[in-house]
Amino acid sequence: MGSGMAGTPTTQRGRITQRDIARRAGVSQTTVSLVLTNNSEAAARIAPATRERVLQVIRETAYVADPLARSLLGRRNQILGIFTYEPVFPAGSADFYHPFLVGIEACAESLGCDLLLFTSAPVTHGTRRIFHENNRLRLADGCVLLGREIPREELTRLVREGHAIVSVGRRDDIDTDGTTPARVPFVGADYAGATSELARRAVALGHRRIAYVGSGEGVESAVDRLDGLRAVAPEVWHERDADREPAELLAELLAAGVTAAFCEQPASAVALSEAALARGLRVPEDLSLVGLGEDDGPGTLSLPLTRLRIPRREMGWQAVEVLTELLHGTGDDLQRLLPCPLVPGRTLAPRRD
């Protein structure tokens, strides 16, 4: 057997890491780290069978923990911060952000950490700013960042000044010193992969001219969705829907010969469906609709929307995991993209001439 198998020396691969231990034991790196601390309250929460499985792999591989990383574990407040660039509790956004917060809370509880929600940040030009004169970031060991869009200058400063942060949502690398791009720790959704898979299904059903309805630019999540569609669809008609009347937008799509519309926001699919009905058209017979997010907004379709599902709870959970590994110096997987399950729905049908 190869050197990577349990019970076999790993000298041919070099020094074994906690990631290797986690993979062999079938647990997260955070769990391995907590087992190694041995005297922490959080470690006591791990199931005995799980602890023994981790210890068995450690014994088999003769793993020796990094003493520096071990020493850092005892120097934390066990407080993790949450900073939201958008309000998360008003009715309009509560449904969308709630699963993220549930995942964050559940993982923090499992680790024995308290959560601190930063709410004193001022709003500048419609966006909260994490840096201000009453900044309390240092009260927390590290911070999870929530928000569709994070100002580039703030993200750059956070990374440049060495703050322990993890973004919920993919973020592009940033230039902090003019030479080497710095990687931003994140847990994001694989929008590009899921959109490409939905596009493959549409193409297989005969759709050739497909519209992308939404911004498709600016924030990484929008760019990823449009890129995923363009990677598969033979011809993409891009229509921005901000401040557009649904009837006008529908008319332009039909004039362009579009037979399937991929909507960045499911609310746009609802609006197009209502406009189609008012025009005497049917969904999906006359126009197929696909949603590229959650359907938590106002309005509903008469048929279940074919869409992707954002793994929001898991993203929140793993964001805390990555932050903990970052703080402990044990993580080598600080940028994660989670797959988006597809919801079949009934709004994507074969193209009709």
Rank of each mutant, 00 (worst) to 15 (best):
N77D: 03
P304Y: 04
L277F: 10
G345M: 06
N134F: 11
L289M: 02
N135A: 10
Y97G: 07
A222P: 01
R230F: 13
S120I: 08
V102I: 15
L277A: 14
L137Q: 09
L327S: 02
T50I: 12
R15W: 07
Q318Y: 03
T31D: 06
D332C: 01
T124H: 10
V57C: 00
A6N: 06
H125E: 11
R23M: 13
W317I: 00
E154N: 13
T330I: 05
A231P: 02
I150C: 08
A25K: 06
V320I: 15
A349D: 07
P87C: 08
Q78G: 14
F100R: 08
A94Y: 13
Q265F: 11
A211C: 09
R313I: 03
S3N: 05
A319Y: 00
S302I: 04
A121Y: 04
R352N: 05
A91V: 15
D296Y: 14
D227N: 15
R225S: 04
R148S: 15
F89I: 13
L34P: 05
L272F: 07
A140E: 09
G169H: 09
S302K: 02
D141Q: 06
D332Q: 03
R136C: 09
R351N: 05
I104V: 15
T10C: 15
T324C: 12
G103A: 10
I310L: 14
R352C: 06
G297F: 09
R208K: 08
L323M: 10
I174M: 06
L72N: 07
Y85W: 15
T84L: 04
F262S: 01
E153Q: 11
L155K: 14
S167R: 12
A211L: 10
L68I: 12
A121E: 11
G345D: 06
V232T: 15
T8H: 10
A182F: 07
V270N: 03
V187P: 08
D295C: 03
T195F: 03
T180D: 11
G316L: 00
G257S: 06
M1L: 10
L137S: 10
L158Y: 14
P99N: 00
Q318T: 12
I210R: 01
P185E: 00
A192Q: 11
A94T: 10
R346W: 07
D224C: 09
R19W: 07
L80R: 09
E197V: 00
Y212S: 10
A164S: 09
R279G: 01
G329K: 03
E197S: 04
P90G: 12
V258N: 00
R59V: 09
A275W: 00
T330V: 13
R240F: 02
P341F: 00
D172R: 15
R24L: 12
E252N: 09
A49L: 11
A121K: 02
A62F: 05
I210D: 03
G316K: 01
A211I: 09
T124G: 01
D172M: 15
A69S: 13
I210N: 01
L277W: 12
A267C: 01
S93I: 14
V320M: 03
T156C: 13
E197N: 00
G218A: 12
